[in-house]
Design a protein around this nucleic acid. Sequence first.
DNA 1: TATAAAAACTAATAAGTGTTAGTTTTGCAA
DNA 2: TTGCAAAACTAACACTTATTAGTTTTTATA
Lengths: 196, 196
Amino acid sequence: MAKIQSGKNATKKEAIIQKAAFLFKIKGYSATSMRELADALGVEAPSLYNYIGSKSELLQGICSRVMGEFTAYLDAVENNMESDISKIEAILRFHIQKMLNNFDEVFVANHEWKHLNEPLLSNFLNQRRTYEKRLMVLIENGIEKNELRAINPYVAVLTILSAVRGLEFWYGHKRNVTQQELENEMVKHLLNGIIK
Amino acid sequence: MAKIQSGKNATKKEAIIQKAAFLFKIKGYSATSMRELADALGVEAPSLYNYIGSKSELLQGICSRVMGEFTAYLDAVENNMESDISKIEAILRFHIQKMLNNFDEVFVANHEWKHLNEPLLSNFLNQRRTYEKRLMVLIENGIEKNELRAINPYVAVLTILSAVRGLEFWYGHKRNVTQQELENEMVKHLLNGIIK
DNA sequence: TATAAAAACTAATAAGTGTTAGTTTTGCAA
DNA sequence: TTGCAAAACTAACACTTATTAGTTTTTATA
């Protein structure tokens, strides 16, 4: 009957992943059925299996891609920027932008990772912990160089990452603030809190 | 066979709610079955229905209780404290403490509210929006009285609430920071970012 | 136009879902 | 010890779940 429309997406598999991210965001992974996903794509559920291996593979794809993008950016920043403060600011801005421009996928990676199967679950958590540690090192260096207040690096990383994650609330009821304003305000609030 | 142990909880219904909050936190609402919940209480699933009306009633109970506690505290603070900054600090500390002392329930209210049925879903979201607005008023007043920087009140509220919510990560791998230290550090980071 | 592959379909399976009905067991009060 | 209510049980229902097998339709190429 209907055909899966890939639209601007390169492949049909990609179209399925995008729609899955959208539904997982709204209903959650467990509460989203393959029939619903197929329905949203104008197709019967078994047809999906011509493109994907399983439901959990969809979640895996989303989570590992998001994680990969953040890690890649951190690699780039660590190698190509000078001061620690500017590194932290760049990463903070990247997080905000990712959150607002790839909302569905980032949201799913943030909220639904617990439904990953082992060993991918452990893998995901390990990568996240490693990422946090690398951010902590940046904060520690900033303190050593006397550019930052003598704060607890872990608490600072936690506070910053969590505040960014909270943008999911903003995303819903876009207020009288532009994305650019929001980004600047947030950077100010979070950096003023730690810069000396 | 086994009897539902109410333990330190007043009623058996309360014991069921507590265990439900624990499981909903770990597995999510949709992925938690009544059979699993019963199992965790050492009982068969149908026995639960001697105490509760339905699975969704459990979620409702958790969400509305948490919401009620936060609202009640805000009422008290608004009526009994002087400066806006001290009001904001008190609320911030209350959030942190609630998060750490009633972790399961707060976590569930934060994450699983989307599975509430109408009209309770709308109700919950309305209450949350109202709560946010009341916090924004505190920030606005602080700015007017020249105690706070000229920030966007909505962004500030968003940043603060989200940062607190992020304590769910801390809760897992308790580091070499005491709860009191954490609270103080976080208050410092978030208030220094906005105080003039 | 014939052919082969891609991509959709229908039907079915085995397992799991919340919940109800009806029954048995338990524990306390008379 | 009897009687009664509270609280557990077993069995079952009506649905939904992800997924597979097998078949038909569509599409593009030769």
